[in-house]
Design a binder for these strands. Structure first.
Lengths: 205, 205
DNA sequence: CTATATTAGACAGTGCAGCTGCCCAATAGC
DNA sequence: GCTATTGGGCAGCTGCACTGTCTAATATAG
């Protein structure tokens, strides 16, 4: 199919498709002539994935590119893929503060018995959150996060269970990315729904 | 204190402080003369809160304003406050699709026994996520979310337990906002840490 | 085989968000 | 009185994610 049909099938404007091609998010079609290229089903699917990462999850274009590159490069090594993909955060991400004291996170990891890479940016996110909460006068340290960490552990178990299905490595890699990224807004939404329900029980009973 | 000291104490540039004043995120100081105003500790604290919502959580300036307005207006009614504050999502938020079929979310809520307002935007986030996952070929419906919802319920219980402390309504309101918004990136970070730890156990043992 | 439409590719331009710099008149403090 | 700082307003800047336009080459209908 040509670009106009690709546009119709995916719901993405042709100018935008060209932009994604330029930015390397979408692989080029098979050129059949100087001004003609042929696109396939994989392009439709890839475009939908791009729109999901950017539109639903809110990743920047360059963050989405990092994710997609990791998928195609490490499709066969789920563990390595997840490690790479964890480096991607929406927007600027955590403003990596070299002087930050992340020993608190270390204590939390030790308590939970989690073995985690030194430079997983999630460490910095937690360090920064704890610091911010304290700077706002809350009495909060890593101990307060332990119950949340236990729930996160169960969540992660659910996540990885769902990767057991597919044998095709590329499919498995895509599913890992979808479950990690696209589920994030949904998990936060579930928390808010549960908060409202619980708030009704406590304050409106 | 005057604006330059407020800038020094909060780490926010004076031009930016003026911008927040214009946008109504920060209440004006007490004017002592035509070109002089007096700021207090509450301004330092408020500025830190603004930076946390925008910089750490990634809210837009106008979304942060909505949150802050809700805090000062409904400080005495925690339930009402939470309801208002749930309307705030980072960036564009869910692209409210009127035609979307949210009966799936209804089924999920019924199953969980959650009573939730009709127009909580979290509903749309979940509807959209499910639709997107299916459009990408995953076999996913509300049943798949039930285990996550059960964990979200426990999370919400932890959250609301931490509101039991303060008697001062304003303090309670602020804490509700901090726990809901600032903890969101941290919870996602915990999930990613747990995913990496679990992935190590499963694929590198 | 001509006339009209479409396309790939390059690049400039647009719209918006979040600041940032600059100017001015009015103090503050010495 | 004199110099430095301030409040307030507004224009301008930067980065991002597109979007529109142009050109030459090609497809396709008549």
């Amino acid at each position: 199919m040509r670009i106009s049909e690709l546009s119709r099938r995916s719901g993405v404007a042709t100018a935008t498709i060209k932009y994604y091609l330029r930015e390397g998010l979408l692989p080029p079609g098979r050129a059949t002539a100087a001004t003609q290229a042929e696109y396939g089903e994989s392009h439709v699917r890839r475009l939908r994935l791009i729109r999901a990462l950017i539109g639903v999850r809110g990743l920047s274009v360059s963050a989405a590119k990092d994710v997609l590159d990791a998928v195609s490069e490490y499709a066969t090594d789920t563990h390595e893929l997840l490690g790479l993909v964890f480096g991607v955060w929406p927007a600027s991400g955590p403003a990596k503060d070299e002087d930050a004291d992340d020993s608190e996170v270390g204590a939390l990891l030790a308590q939970m018995g989690w073995k985690v890479s030194e430079h997983n940016p999630a460490r910095d996110v937690i360090t920064q959150t704890l610091q911010t909460l304290r700077s706002l006068g809350m009495d909060y340290d890593w101990h307060s996060l332990v119950p949340y960490a236990q729930l996160a552990e169960k969540t992660a178990t659910l996540d990885l269970d769902q990767l057991e299905g597919p044998d095709d490595p590329l499919e498995k890699a895509e599913r890992a990315v979808l479950l990690t990224f696209l589920l994030e807004p949904a998990l936060l939404a579930l928390r808010r729904l549960a908060q409202e329900a619980e708030s009704t029980v406590r304050y409106r009973s």
